[in-house]
Design a protein around this nucleic acid. Sequence first.
DNA 1: CAGTGGTCTAGACCACGTT
DNA 2: ACGTGGTCTAGACCACTGA
Lengths: 260, 260
Amino acid sequence: MAETGSARPATAGAFDRLEVALDRASPIPLYYQLAQHLESAIERGALAPGDLLGNEVDIAARLGLSRPTVRQAIQSLVDKGLMVRRRGIGTQVVHSQVRRSLELSSLYDDLAAAGQSPATRVLRNEIQSASAEVAAALGIPEGRDVIVLERLRTTHGEPVAHLCNHLPASLIQADTGRLRETGLYRVLRAAGITLHSAQQTVGARSATDREAELLDEPAGAALLTMRRTAYDDHGRAVEYGTHVYRASRYTFDFQLLVRP
Amino acid sequence: MAETGSARPATAGAFDRLEVALDRASPIPLYYQLAQHLESAIERGALAPGDLLGNEVDIAARLGLSRPTVRQAIQSLVDKGLMVRRRGIGTQVVHSQVRRSLELSSLYDDLAAAGQSPATRVLRNEIQSASAEVAAALGIPEGRDVIVLERLRTTHGEPVAHLCNHLPASLIQADTGRLRETGLYRVLRAAGITLHSAQQTVGARSATDREAELLDEPAGAALLTMRRTAYDDHGRAVEYGTHVYRASRYTFDFQLLVRP
DNA sequence: CAGTGGTCTAGACCACGTT
DNA sequence: ACGTGGTCTAGACCACTGA
């Protein structure tokens, strides 16, 4: 009965304006294709902040998808903080511009993405037996062999950070040459180690004399510190790092989402 | 045909050992009830790290739920980093103990949860016109009225942080008495403002003379700084804060998850 | 090969917020 | 009252993993 026909100007959502072409032959899941389309539409402004997307049933019908599939796509954007759902209202693009949230990428990637042309000086790359602190952080017996990496990260010739990492020696062979050109996490990834999570602690303290010299800061300058243990898929600790950053040249930016 | 009867020792998952009682009359969603059961089982050790949960179809059958509902429950735990799914293997409890990740709670809640019995001294609570910096952070016109809050947070009589917040004056009436006893975010919540997300920047710098005196630190001590803009459901900026923490008494802990 | 999670369908009813 | 998202069902087929 309630056949609305072709005209439906009533509660048209912003989704109408989009041209979404799904490829059912692609190995990429449909919900993921849709999510990518929506995200890129937001990025290029085709979906503006505050826009109502339009209801899920219509979108599903228009795309020839089932509603759960459409929901899965939208939900992934909600989880990213790009959209907000409201019962009785609809789904809208979030008003505030969302900055990229902190990911589990290496500092190298962070800097490269920011166009900072990072470089690395490897100060130390050797095998030692694990101290009590390192053993506890990595969850291995004290005295077990670990790779100790000490590096100085610079951008445009200026030092940014002093990085000290410990890895179980059984994991990889740390190639100093490769570590000069890229980040530790890329080396791990290339070795088939997929990171899963990391526990980080960020703090501050005054620079030691050696740190001040390495980082080209005055004695006793305030530095930003970060201690991190990274875990792989199996929950095994893969890396323990204690890093020190020049506070004048580096901060941690991240976005928090309230879990509903 | 393939009636296995009561004996099924073959690939029994750890889920068998759990007693999960769902309340279909409850307004709490079934997937959420199941997720809570599983999470508490992990917390009290009934599900140990590395345990295979058992396949989703069986669990669904045992509980009288559909598989998507069971999946939704498990997925929420995967999103929290408590479990890992592997195709062809199953779902297991993550090996490493997962610490609580940083949430969008107030410093007051953080300290209270840690049993630190926080207290607050309100140094300033007045209305001013927004400076360019504050106006830009809050997304309002320069010169618009804003509430300026300056507070000193202490635990056990020792200063921990110096907090400076700016809020659009139209939002709430900031009651100094309530701010002494609780955190700003609780006051906001009580005023019907639901926070949605926040953008934070963490850094470090040396203490000014006034900060050193307020925080009982030596002159020029290294301090941890945090700048935050918080947004509500509609994406409107609700609060802009510039906080300074004693590095000797406070750090930021958080967990990062790799999004798959 | 058998078993697992990953994806998808086509519906249904309910709770909530607006009107 | 109505429209929205929130939840749930009962299946289906596929892709990956391990033996």
